[in-house]
Design a protein around this nucleic acid. Structure first.
Lengths: 109, 109
DNA sequence: GGCTTACTTAACTGTCCAGTTACGCACGTT
DNA sequence: AACGTGCGTAACTGGACAGTTAAGTAAGCC
């Protein structure tokens, strides 16, 4: 779940979204953000360390590609909670207000 | 997507997991962690501000309950990426190595 | 070899955040 | 009214982190 920390930053989420549309070079990516290139470089490093991104050297370019596996982990983490909103979405408020117990679910930390 | 930042902390994820099994008082929660009660109080505040948790005063107790809506938002954010790992999970490495384009997806930031 | 291009790393700064102890407040009990 | 209990908030500290500019490394070109 290290991916969660990586995805907590909006810039990094945007990078992920961009890379979902296809791989890109580092400078190419940096050009689409209002921050400096080193800043993007560091973001890419965080994403890399979280396993969300893979680099490939192509000449002097560094081409970044999305690796969806941590996202799938996140999906798996989220899965057990899914039943909580799957049904009766609009009945939630009243249910919470009434304080009914759910009695399910364990960690997954 | 403010929930992502809230869930980036392991302690808070654990609190969420505990509350998924049923609501609990603040002190009750704090007792299950190695940190001080004020620390948990602050975590609960972050979760509250992220909408992940609801409080209800019951006498002098503060009973916390999970609100799954931000989790469902997170699920929705994750949804467009799902097709990336849905099929050919083992073919991913080679696909990334080959550098094939995906050509889909926008932000969601 | 010497220069440009494409990125990363280093060093520094400001801000945010989790943890602590000390204090404050409201409810309940006697 | 006085006191204990259950929490929250305040004030402070240490560490992590995003941003900057400046320096370093590696590939391509002349």
């Amino acid at each position: 779940m290290e991916a969660l920390a990586a995805l907590a930053d909006p810039t990094r989420r945007q990078i992920v979204a961009l890379l979902a549309a296809g791989e890109q070079g580092a400078g190419e990516l940096a050009g689409q953000f209002p921050v400096s290139r080193p800043a993007i470089s560091r973001h890419l490093r965080v994403l890399r360390e979280a396993g969300l991104v893979q680099v490939r050297a192509e000449g002097q370019r560094r081409v970044y590609a999305l690796d969806p596996r941590p996202l799938s982990e996140l999906d798996a983490w989220l899965a057990p909670y899914r039943r909580l909103w799957a049904q009766r979405l609009d009945a939630l408020d009243t249910e919470i207000a009434r304080g009914r117990r759910a009695r399910t679910q364990e960690d997954g930390r």
